[in-house]
């Protein structure tokens, strides 16, 4: 009954107004910039509206293709790795072992490492000559990996760092989902003397699948925005190997100061984000009301 009270606006509006106030202007302004030739030279002297020219030149921009490849590899790769590892770790922690609590705390630590610092950390870890990862590989009798001088290895190094940071996120959510599965289901299965893997395959997995789907979407979107780690770790190199799409938007807009073009690149990303979020809401629509 009190659902109709006027007070409801008092509760709702502060947050909504805040978001509107601070995001609407930048968004509209960037949309406008994307139709202009604004750059460093003319920014204060007046630029021209050039219609869709910026958007038209995107397909022929070599860097766009290169950076999209990197972004897609990182996004799909890191999402897959975090999902598999996160689920595995959640499965481990879903066992009744005494003392596990302490470890759970340790395992969430990476989530709170600043990505910019993480990239620099990668610089030390993946260093080909002095880095501990290559020392470790050599210690096991392998050959050092060319983390910094081979395109796919470098992309993989960035992927591993990102996965290191975000595996705990998947772990926490999947663990929660696993623990919401009623015991009765397991007990029934155990009476059938099914052992570990079949139980996981036929009972646990189907029940955590919805949560996994949600997490996957969230991770896809977040990883596509990745910028800090490649920026600080490899400067986008070797060559353009670890330049992600966001990175390209960044250097176009804020190093070359080709603001018009950068805004059009960014808006492509906004459109992709809208498509992905639509899928997201379509998928979990049922849970919202």
């Amino acid at each position: 009954m009190y659902k109709k009270t006027r007070a409801r606006y008092f509760f709702l509006m502060p947050g909504i107004i805040w978001i509107l106030a601070f995001t609407i202007f930048p968004l509209i302004y960037s949309l406008y910039l994307s139709f202009t030739n604004a750059n460093m030279r003319n920014f204060n002297r007046g630029w021209d509206v050039i219609g869709l020219e910026n958007y038209a030149s995107i397909p022929s921009d070599l860097r766009v293709g290169e950076t999209v490849v990197t972004s897609v590899y990182l996004t799909l790769g890191s999402t897959a790795v975090t999902l598999v590892l996160g689920t595995f770790v959640a499965w481990l922690f879903n066992h009744n072992l005494p003392g596990l609590r302490i470890f759970r705390g340790i395992l969430t630590m990476p989530l709170f490492a600043a990505p910019i610092a993480l990239g620099f950390m990668g610089l030390i870890l993946f260093n080909e000559t002095s880095g501990s990862i290559n020392s470790f590989i050599r210690g096991l009798g392998g050959q050092g990996v060319r983390w910094m001088t081979d395109s796919w290895s470098a992309r993989t190094a960035v992927l591993l760092l990102d996965a290191w940071q975000w595996t705990p996120f998947v772990f926490i959510i999947v663990l929660a989902a696993m623990q919401s599965i009623p015991d009765e289901l397991y007990e029934a299965a155990r009476l059938d003397t099914a052992s570990g893997w079949p139980i996981f395959r036929h009972i646990t997995f189907p029940l955590i699948a919805p949560a996994l789907g949600t997490v996957a979407l969230l991770r896809l979107v977040e990883t596509f925005k990745i910028l800090d780690i490649p920026l600080s770790m490899l400067g986008g190199g070797p060559g353009s190997a670890t330049q992600t799409y966001s990175y390209y938007v960044y250097i176009t807009g804020l190093r070359s100061f080709n603001m018009g073009y950068a805004s059009s690149l960014a808006y492509i990303l906004v459109i992709i984000a809208i498509i992905i979020s639509s899928i997201y809401f379509w998928r979990i629509r049922a849970r919202f009301e």
């Binding site: 202007f25 968004l27 302004y29 960037s30 596509f224 938007v249 603001m259 960014a266 990303l269």
Partner: peptide, 8 residues
């Protein structure tokens, strides 16, 4: 993406 709106 935050980069998109930095200058505005």
């Amino acid at each position: 993406p935050p980069v998109a709106t930095l200058i505005p």
